[in-house]
């Protein structure tokens, strides 16, 4: 009974979160003494699909059907359920990203599976029970879950379990799955993506700013820092609420949750709701003129100082570093 991994590329290229999910699937498969099959819905080339073998995929099944070009969580779940039945699979792995969050719960209902949404470590088996950790209370605690049902679905939180490379033994095979017109219920009419910008949800470095910037006209130095570091830009809730910055940039309890390797907070005090959206970051740097700002308690590195003085100097230092690196 193989482990299935759903891998969705970014415009035809696999990225770190895909490698993490495949490598994770391979480690779950090793626990269950079985194989790791990746499922592709995008009709990608053999070479691109085979690259997933570097992370432990033993086979990639390419489901070729034009209906799957239209993202519909219900349709994707229906097809994955059919694939699981055809391949006799009882465990399915997703990345806990936009698509995984949409498809996995629908599939859990269809497969009658126990589902852990947002796992942060490799599971442990105890008989047929799978034990696995996930963040709860917006990162303020960790819970140890048990999945009791025979069918199991796990969505892995990005940037929590590093992918491991292995010898590539991967092959690619096509798989026919019948789709009826009535299986597709949600039709995508238009896709709008900011071009040329680094996507906030999977950025390695995030430069974020808050009310300490005093006005939207002062964001030049924030964007400059992001450009130098190859980072995405983010903001605190008040800044999005007063429309200094677009809502897509709002990180925090009611906005986006980010888990970059480096989170740099400029002029953000660090309210508990903001911390809930960023506390999974590996390293946090806080620059704030108020030494009592609560954010310093959650930070790894800090500078107490006026952002208008510190940030331009820091940008020059980052530039020198990048020029020398």
């Amino acid at each position: 009974m193989p482990v299935l991994v759903f891998a969705e590329s970014a415009n035809g290229t696999f990225k770190k979160s895909n490698f993490e999910a495949v490598s994770y699937g391979a480690r779950v498969a090793a626990l269950l003494n079985t194989e790791t099959f990746v499922i592709d819905f995008e009709n990608l080339s053999d070479d691109v699909l085979k690259s997933l073998g570097d992370y432990g995929a033993t086979k990639v099944y390419r489901v070729t059907n034009d209906a799957l070009k239209n993202f519909d969580a219900g349709l994707h779940a229906k097809v994955l359920n059919d694939v699981a039945q055809k391949l006799n699979a009882t465990t399915v792995i997703f990345s806990f990203n936009y698509s995984g969050k949409a498809i996995a719960p629908v599939l859990a209902a269809k497969m009658n599976a126990g589902y852990v949404a947002g796992a942060i470590d490799i599971p442990v088996m105890e008989g047929s029970t799978m034990k696995i950790r996930k963040n709860v209370f917006s990162g303020k605690a960790i819970a140890l879950y048990a999945i009791h049902s025979d069918n199991k679905i796990i969505a892995l939180t990005p940037n929590t379990v590093a992918p491991e490379k292995t010898e590539n033994k991967c092959s690619v095979e096509n798989l026919e799955i019948a789709i009826k017109a009535t299986d597709s219920k949600v039709k995508v009419k238009e896709v709008v993506k900011a071009s040329g910008k680094i996507t906030l949800s999977d950025a390695d470095i995030v430069v974020s700013a808050g009310r300490g910037l005093k006005g939207p006209e002062n964001w030049g130095m924030v964007e400059e820092m992001a450009n130098i570091l190859g980072a995405a830009t983010a903001c605190s809730r008040p800044v999005a609420d007063i429309h200094w910055r677009p809502h897509e940039e709002h990180v925090g309890q009611t906005g986006l949750t980010v888990r970059p390797n480096l989170y740099i907070a400029l002029g953000i005090s660090g309210a508990i709701q903001h911390l809930a959206g960023v506390n999974g970051s590996k390293v946090i740097v806080v620059i704030n003129k108020d030494p009592e700002a609560p954010f310093f308690k959650a930070a790894d590195y800090g500078i107490v100082g006026d952002v208008f003085e510190v940030v331009p100097k820091l940008n020059e230092a980052f530039k020198r570093f990048k020029a020398g690196a």
Binding site: K131, A141, L144, Y145, V286, V304
Partner: peptide, 25 residues
Amino acid sequence: NYTSILSYELPKEKTGVKLVSADNV
């Protein structure tokens, strides 16, 4: 019975912020 929570833990506390002088970025 699909899933249950066996136990909870709190995340490791940060070891404390390392402050750098604003004059030495």
